[in-house]
Write a protein that binds this DNA or RNA. Structure first.
Lengths: 201, 201
DNA sequence: GTTCGGACGGACCGATCGGTCCGATACCAT
DNA sequence: ATGGTATCGGACCGATCGGTCCGTCCGAAC
């Protein structure tokens, strides 16, 4: 190896850790397994990520960035109409959920696995997860606001329920059945944002 | 202590284990903690539940029974109209979710924590969780069938999305915010089952 | 009062956890 | 060829995991 500190070592470690954390759960994956599968020395890993919590936080942070990018791309492709943009966001979630190997939302899964986030060393990853979810919900909230609806709060809640439902279904439903949920969610989202008179009472 | 084997020991152990598993996650709670908080001897616990997986399966099984009972009571109180019965089911979920200390669906949380359920010793608890979810979804499916709608499959998916969404929101949203989701879900469920012409396209 | 079964709970097992340390190795510049 | 540096990866640490075993104790039956 050259003298230069390390070109892509950090990314390689983070990539392996992300794959394992996501596939098996955070607690189920030990640092030793990450080290062995990454083919790196123990020293090097702990030099980049001093504790497991740091590595987990980096894993969630990277996932948050990727999902935010994907959402932004979907928004950019959706045009200017806020209704179209909302539907595009839900459809983007549906696309993610339908992907083979998808095993649920990394953030919701993490929060389900570590409910005692405020206390202890798990505070950092928990904060990353909660902030991502809050940001994600706010994006829908803002778009609904542009819609000039009588009760934006209610519509936001309804749409967010669909997003939550889509993600959690991916944690336990067969991959073959998920597209049913996806189709239902996208269709319902479209109806919800389109017809203000249509869906009422 | 009398000679008789044990009156409520099993229930006491299971109660303590259930509370801890639910509050902190299954992997986060060690057998030693259950034993110490239950105030029982190690021998006695392992006599009733030979392995941790057995105890976890019993925890989920008990929870499944209680939730099924609560759902049945809600159905009994809802009358004969299938539309009312469906709304009553969703409202019952909302009532559960709004309960203080509620931390998400025990089954969905477990499946998020143990994604590799088919393999290893976790097979039994995973089967309990999956079966409960399948049964629960089927109950809605059957009620939708009584509704004589053009596309019962789609309506079932939509309602099930609401249930999934309600449960997962409880894992990460503040208790104060959850009633927003509950109100949105119950209201939307009512609209979905009521107006076949209302919610379309 | 003696005996006997059941319950308590600590000692202990091997394995694994997160994390530290250090020797061996491989590479580059001189 | 040599020195230096960065990496690898195993030895090791204390703690904890699930699980087994056994000594102690207590209450009831005789």
């Amino acid at each position: 190896m050259p003298r230069t500190p390390a070109p892509g070592t950090r990314d390689r470690i983070l990539g392996v850790a992300s794959r394992l954390f996501y596939a098996h759960g955070v607690r189920a994956v030990g640092m030793s397994r990450i080290i062995s599968e990454a083919g790196t020395g123990k020293n090097l890993l702990y030099q980049h990520f001093p504790t497991k919590a740091d590595l987990v936080a980096a894993y969630l942070d990277q996932a948050a960035g990727r999902r935010a990018d994907a959402a932004q791309r979907a928004l950019d492709a959706a045009g200017e109409d806020p209704a179209d943009r909302i539907v595009a966001l839900v459809a983007e979630v549906g696309r993610v959920v339908d992907r083979p190997g998808f095993r649920g939302c990394a953030f919701r899964n993490y929060l389900a696995e570590f409910p005692d986030g405020a206390e202890g060393e798990d505070a950092a990853p928990t904060a990353v997860a909660r902030e991502y979810l809050a940001r994600s919900r706010r994006r829908i909230e803002d778009l609904v606001g542009e819609l000039d609806r009588a009760d934006p709060e209610r519509l936001t809640e309804r749409l967010w329920l669909l997003v939550d439902g889509l993600y959690v279904q991916a944690t336990y439903r067969e991959a073959a059945d998920r597209h049913l949920g996806v189709a239902a969610a996208v269709g319902l989202a479209r109806e919800l944002v389109a017809g203000s008179a249509m869906v009422r009472s």
